[in-house]
Structure formats: structure tokens, C-alpha cells
């Protein structure tokens, strides 16, 4: 269900305009404006506490914004609840593994795929009889490299595999845009490499928005980059431009890039 690639001057898929979130007196995201174009992987980076996760939660409707706008293909989605945004085609994964641990891997993905039925208010036929839903679930497991794990109870798998499942579930919803919140968080080296390979494959098919700590991964994946510090946007644009920016160099990327 990925959108067709358009003209060279590719169209804007996701855009925020002065997006703001305050918790009481604390402004976690302060007037952040970014643009994500069709097929161009975009990364959001920043130190801990920069407001990245809050930003993702605003993008996907998991938190209500205090001000500003989120536009998806030109449509204002700022005040939509999470489930409506998911249905529009913005799939997200979570920083903290967020799966159904008592379900099998297949059932996790099947449920995700089932969410694309016009309604799941179907009461009397077994869910497993929905062939196209099953097919979508299986394809998502394959894409995420979990085909061999189909029957495993999700909660009993290794951490790395649970992260893969997290991605597989998003894929099973047939999204247009993938918003991935720290897909590499907490992973060992080998697991990370596998995940980066997976993400590279996905970048060819989906528009990726990636929140990540791992700089190597970010630079090998992203075309455009947004740097956030203390809830505000420091710089946003093509990776090379942002990397060269003096402000970013000073504040963030310089020698201390490995520091956190």
C-alpha cells in the first residue's frame, strides 16, 4: 500500500507547523516545523530530553498538541485521535516494546493487519478465516524477518526479536508513512546491524520518519535530518547541510557525538 513515487520534486507527505506541547509549565516541544517528503527518509535526533518522543506522540495523535499543526498530505490531522491517524496510513512503532506478549507472533501481526478491515465488528466467523488479512500478516512477518517465528508466543522471544515484531506489526497495517521511535534502542551490535539492514530495505518502499540515537544508523539511512535540543528545532534540512551547520556542530554533533 506504499504510495507511488511521484515527480522528481517529490511531494510533501508529512509536515508540522509550529507544533508545540506544554506539560503544565514545561514546554516539551516548542514550535517545531518540519517537512517530510515522499520517499525521503527523515531522521529526528537530539539528546535525551530534547522532546523527540513527545514529538512522535504528537505526530501520531498519542498526545494532544497544545499548539501548531500536523499536516498529512495537506490535510490537518492535529486533533485526530491515534486510531484515526493510524488508519490514514501513518504507522508507528514504539520506543518501549509495545506488543501483545501473550499472543503469538502471527496473532500480533494478524491483529495489526485486521485493523485495516473497514470494521472488525464481525462476530461469528473465525478471524483466522480472513485470507487476505492472514496474507498481509505473513508478508509483514517475512519483511521483518520473523517468518520462522510465526507460532512463538511473543513475550517469550528475545528482545531483538520483539523489536522486529514491533516493526512487523506496523508493516502489517499497510502504512504509507512509517514513524519509528528509536527502533535500535537497547539492541546489541549484531541485532542493530540486522535492524539497520531491515530499515534500509523498508526505506525503499515507505517514507520513513526515524527518531534515533545511533548516529551511524541515522547517517546511513536518512536523507533529511531534524535536530532538536531542549524542545526546540535547531536545524532541519538535507543531511549534509544540517551536518555542516555551525549551530549543530557547536551544540550537538561536534566532538561530543559519542558522549551520550
Amino acid at each position: 500500500m506504499s504510495a507511488p513515487k511521484s515527480s522528481p520534486e517529490s511531494s510533501i507527505v508529512l509536515e508540522t507547523r509550529e507544533l508545540t506541547k506544554a506539560f503544565g509549565g514545561l514546554v516539551a516541544v516548542n514550535s517545531v516545523s518540519i517537512v517530510v517528503r515522499e520517499g525521503e527518509p527523515h531522521a529526528v535526533i537530539g539528546p535525551n530530553g530534547a522532546g523527540k518522543s513527545t514529538f512522535v506522540n504528537l505526530l501520531t495523535g498519542h498526545l494532544p498538541a497544545s499548539g501548531g499543526q500536523v499536516l498529512f498530505r495537506g490535510r490537518d490531522i492535529t486533533s485526530l485521535p491515534a486510531h484515526r491517524i493510524s488508519r490514514l496510513g501513518i504507522g508507528r512503532s514504539y520506543q518501549k516494546t509495545n506488543i501483545f506478549p501473550t499472543f503469538t507472533v502471527f496473532e500480533n501481526c494478524r491483529l495489526a493487519a485486521q485493523s485495516r478491515l473497514s470494521s472488525s465488528m464481525r462476530f461469528f466467523r473465525p478471524a483466522r478465516a480472513l485470507a487476505d488479512v492472514n496474507a498481509r500478516a505473513e508478508r509483514a512477518m517475512e519483511l521483518a524477518g520473523l517468518a520462522a517465528r510465526s507460532g512463538r508466543v511473543a513475550g517469550t522471544m528475545s528482545y531483538g526479536e520483539q523489536r522486529q515484531l514491533e516493526i512487523a506489526m506496523v508493516l502489517a497495517t499497510g502504512p504509507d508513512v512509517l514513524v519509528l521511535d528509536e527502533p535500535l534502542a537497547g539492541m546489541g551490535r549484531e541485532e542493530s546491524e540486522r535492524m539497520v539492514t531491515l530499515l534500509k530495505g523498508l526505506a525503499a518502499q515507505y517514507t520513513l520518519v526515524l527518531v534515533e540515537h545511533d548516529m551511524d544508523a541515522v547517517f546511513s539511512l536518512a536523507h533529511t535530518l531534524t535536530v532538536m535540543v531542549n524542545g526546540t528545532l535547531l536545524e532541519s534540512g538535507p543531511v549534509d547541510v544540517v551536518r555542516a551547520s555551525q549551530a549543530v556542530q557547536d551544540a550537538y554533533l561536534g566532538d561530543g557525538a559519542e558522549a551520550y
Partner: peptide, 24 residues
Amino acid sequence: ASPFGRVVQAIGVNESRVKGLGFN
């Protein structure tokens, strides 16, 4: 066992995730 039942069961396990998947 129905699609409805699977969603309800999933809500019992992890409601916010169900919402994130696009169900109300």
C-alpha cells in the same frame, strides 16, 4: 475467535497498542 473477539482480547492485554493499530 471472531475478528471482534480478537480485538477485545487484545484490548485486555494492551489497550493503548490496540488504539495505535487503528482500532477505536
